[in-house]
Design a protein around this nucleic acid. Sequence first.
RNA 1: GUGAGCGUAGCUCAGUUGGUUAGAGCACCAGGUUGUGGCCCUGGGGGUCGUGGGUUCAAUUCCCAUCGCUCACCCCA
Length: 419
Amino acid sequence: MIKSITGTKDILPEDIQRWNFLESIVEKVFASFNYKEIRTPVFEETALFARGIGEATDIVGKEMYTFIDRSETSITLKPEMTASVVRAFVEHSLGTKQPLNKLFYISPMFRQERPQAGRFRQFHQFGAEAIGSNSPLLDAEMIQMAFDIFKLLGLKDVSVKINSLGVPESREKYKELLRNYLFDKKDNLSEDSRMRFEKNILRIFDSKIECDREIMKNAPLLIDYLDEESKNDFEIVKEALTRGNIPFEIDPKLVRGLDYYTKTTFEIVSEKVGSQSALCGGGRYDLLIEQLGGKPTPGVGFAAGIERILLACENEKAFSIPESSIDLYITRLDKELEKFVYDIASYFRRENFIVEIDYLDRSVKAQMREANKLGSRYVLFAGGEEFQNGLLNLKNMADGIQKTFDKNNLEEIKNYLKK
RNA sequence: GUGAGCGUAGCUCAGUUGGUUAGAGCACCAGGUUGUGGCCCUGGGGGUCGUGGGUUCAAUUCCCAUCGCUCACCCCA
């Protein structure tokens, strides 16, 4: 038997209503903040992600689905959306059409990692990007939108974490400080963290290893060494969140794994989804557009993982989807009535009723069982003496009461059903 | 990439200290009313016991390999 590729999942009819519900809320919230949807191709030239996300990141280093196509071009299935959105922004000169572009997306992403709870090789994200303003109110807006979406879904057990990475100059100065702090303690760090010391020193803060944590406990924090501008912006973000009644905590150790972040970064996490607890993450990327060949333009955005959010919703019983049901099931007695039943079903379907009939030539009893299983409000019977006499019986499945109608006057039945 | 656990019916799982035709519940189908649902009753279909090899008179059960799933590490949504 051929099975789906490792780390990919079918979304079956029994699951799809949860997805549709989530997507409808996402679209509603983004619309209320005046974000416009953008769709980009699922694959891009590999160089876009290598340059946009950063060569040194894990995503680029070991997680991308990259292949050479028939024209010898290196192609990569998108592992995240920001680089693609920025590419489209630059390619279509969106910045010249209006100074601020507010964009959102809902899209599959691809990363070749070992699957585990809340992690897949094809997964789905929704997210937003606001390109063209350095206002920290937009940073707050991102968090606000994500938080609103979670709230509308009924999620309660989530927490917002924010941090500021400052601008590159202040960050470099701080990194020097951190290097000095760690220099004589280096040998006591874990092997991974010694690697990070060379490659990306900030990420030593991410380590879950006890000896690293012990050492980092007294390390200087970036947030205490921010430049004035970053510090002010961070204050504005915090104040806006407070006014918006969004509880948050400052996490000076929140260092995100993508290279393009500047100033504000944030995550919203849930304890209800296993060890992959980040439901959404984002931040400001004021240098990325330039780096990808555009004019210097500030930007900020976030991405949220749909599978993880649905998992959190399930574990929290955040919302429930009502059982689906149909309006009318039309049964028949004899096979000769098949075409008649098909035609009157078409009539009611055109009148916007949800209608089902039997295609398996089953007994009336089996048809009734089916109607019941489908939660049909009414059943219309075709067959036997009444039919010979030009009549149809309509049964209300809730109370079992039957009414008789003229089979040539479907409009009368329609009007009755509409009540 | 590393580590651990698990693979028996569509689903959830029993079972075999190696021994005749491998079970249950749910789901599905049919019948109980030769034209009518939900409850109930009766019956039925469906399994190469993940795959390949080994040990044995005999393997679903023991051993090895392999594939898959799950969880965790790394990192992230």
